[in-house]
Design a protein around this nucleic acid. Structure first.
Lengths: 201, 201
DNA sequence: TCAAAACGTTAACAAAAGATAAGGAATTAA
DNA sequence: TTAATTCCTTATCTTTTGTTAACGTTTTGA
């Protein structure tokens, strides 16, 4: 994927939240960087401040924590999704998690400094502010639903629902990552899968 | 608490995110309503669209879902915290949960319609937009941390941490609400409490 | 004030999940 | 290609949690 189509993907994503005319897009695009992220490379590392926010225009990434020497996967970002350790990015504090490319990926990045400049740009400021609000609201709702699922559903129900709502990407991700994502062990997920298979068989 | 001091509390809260001059505050306050919410009364009911967002200036409220006829408590709002079913409010879709006053409370409300008008107000628009972004970011971070705790911590660890971080409000809330909040049953929380007591004794 | 309801704890049992280890299949990397 | 690693499943055993019910206490509401 070339730089131009990567940027166009970003524009399309941005415009799904806030429309832009060509002049505004011209200004905004100056602040963006198109960067490759090779498989297994880190976008964010625990202990370092996450200095940018990005859009995955190709590939995918995995969020994970390390606890007692074990990796615990918390989230994924696929094509046309945002990528960042939000708390670290927003509060300028060291990240507590890692973000690692699951496959060779391309990210359109907006650094913290450039975001600030874009927000002060007379032409763009208002739309950047609105984009920031809508993105935050979007992910707020995602998290709200995820917390609800932890509180109101059993692991088995959470997995069944994930099978229904999650796309084909589910089948490309190792099961033990999904187990972590659901808040259970890989062994437990395997047992749940067997139970479900028996019921539907 | 009278209307004036309720409004002043709202101003102080707003200004902890975005400063206002007197003229701007004068404009903003026109859009606000100070409403009492008697104990056990509902701020939001499942099935209805949550049409406002509020600040608790006095009292507290409980968020809960109903599943299989059982109430499952998901969250609380105390003094100086926002109150809303965000997804419902933001997307104009029916809420899936209830929000009920835990005690006689006073809420400073901003209706969806008034929020939109305030955002179109020339004097206020930009600051409202920014406030909306910062609030969404604030709660995004809260939820991010909560999801992390579900994935990386055991129920016992979650409860221990809640004891450390949660204020005295913890001791005013029924244990079974807290159990729900932690994603476990009241019986299980009771056992965890006994285990912790033995260790620290 | 008094009866009813709600609350927290405990017990007993069942169900589920965690921990550990082993084995085979699939993937990866030299 | 081959050796090493990763991955998923399965089994066994332990621990934890869920379920139901009982009991005494506290709170609530008529």
């Amino acid at each position: 994927m070339d730089t131009l189509s990567a940027l166009n993907k970003f524009r399309k994503y941005f415009e799904s939240f806030v429309p832009l005319n060509d002049e505004e897009w011209q200004a905004l695009s100056q602040y963006l960087m198109v960067d490759p992220l090779k498989k297994k490379k880190f976008y964010v590392e625990a202990g370092k401040v996450c200095d940018q926010i990005g859009l995955v225009v190709k590939g995918s990434a995995r969020y994970y924590h390390v606890k007692d020497g074990e990796e615990i996967t918390g989230y994924f970002s696929f094509e046309d999704e945002m990528l960042s350790s939000y708390k670290s990015f927003l509060t300028r504090t060291p990240a507590v998690n890692y973000i690692q490319a699951l496959e060779d990926s391309i990210i359109v990045n907006l650094s913290h400094k450039n975001l600030q400049q874009a927000c002060m740009n007379e032409l763009l400021g208002f739309k950047m502010e609105r984009f920031g609000r809508l993105i935050a609201e979007h992910y707020l709702i995602c998290y709200e639903e995820r917390v609800t699922s932890f509180i109101t559903q059993s692991p088995e129900e959470r997995y069944s629902q994930l099978l229904e709502t999650g796309g084909e990407a589910l089948y490309r991700i190792p099961q033990h990552y999904i187990a972590n994502f659901l808040g259970i062990t890989p062994v437990s997920l395997s047992r749940i899968r067997r139970r479900i298979m028996k019921i539907s068989a």
